[in-house]
Amino acid sequence: MSLEPSSVNSSSVASASTQALNIDVLVSVGRHSLTERPRRADLDARALELALRLRDQRGAQVNACHVGEGGQRAGSDTEAALRDYLGMGLEHLTWIDAPQGSDALGLLDEHLRAGQVSAGPRLVLCGMRAEQGEGSGLLPFLLSESLGWAYVPAVVEVEDVASEDGHWYTTVLQALPRGQRRRLRVRLPALLGIDAAAAQPRQSAFGPARRGRIEQRQLETSVIADESLANWPLQPAKPRPKRLKIVTATNARDRFKAAAAKAESTGGKVLQDVSPEQGAEAVLTLLKEEGVLR
């Protein structure tokens, strides 16, 4: 890292008292993959977990918000799922009314713009994909475009929030394939998409879930129907066909071999009667060729 950690920490601590970090968490209703019961969505719960940790560590202000169908609230599936989030230690949660099949983009845009109270740093956390509906993971990209904020997907940890030259920056860890991590420095305000590799969400406790308030909100923005869903309705997924092994051999012998023979030895190199050093040398060369040695 090019930043000196000491200076970064001091500035962030000093400013934390004056300008608290403001975090919005976008939560949705999930569904258990087997039982199909409504529950908190796993990725969104991880996002909330990350926000709550930032609240505990550096006094960030956390607001959660859900856009969804209002109507009959008490006892509905949506309410049960939202109370799961409250049970994680949240005092209140905003529920923005939207008729079924409407586009959440405009509503979220308005809500987040209105939420800008101070000049303090601003973060929006969300899961990378919804568990219900289209689940294409497109919403954060659209939101980042309409708000003009940066979007970083696959975030697993927020390491630091600090100001430099009058701008706020955050350093985050991004999950790469194969368990690797990458450190990014992002200018705030920003949206962070939380990856499944982020910390496990804490359990939802019954008492706080009961006590937490769900605040209903109506927005002025005219609701637009989600044209994608309206034009092209979802259907239950059909199992995808298994790919057949294509053999393009021109003669019967090769085709037979491809169909019947089990994988033969690939004719690897065998080093026999070599000293351990020579053997180690050969292994090291292969490791370097493959680039797995750091």
Binding site: S33, R129, A130, G133, E134, S136, W232, L234, Q235, A237
Partner: peptide, 11 residues
């Protein structure tokens, strides 16, 4: 295919 793998959307 939807993100959850439960839905298909022809379009």
């Amino acid at each position: 295919r939807s993100g959850s793998g439960r839905w298909d959307q022809p379009r």
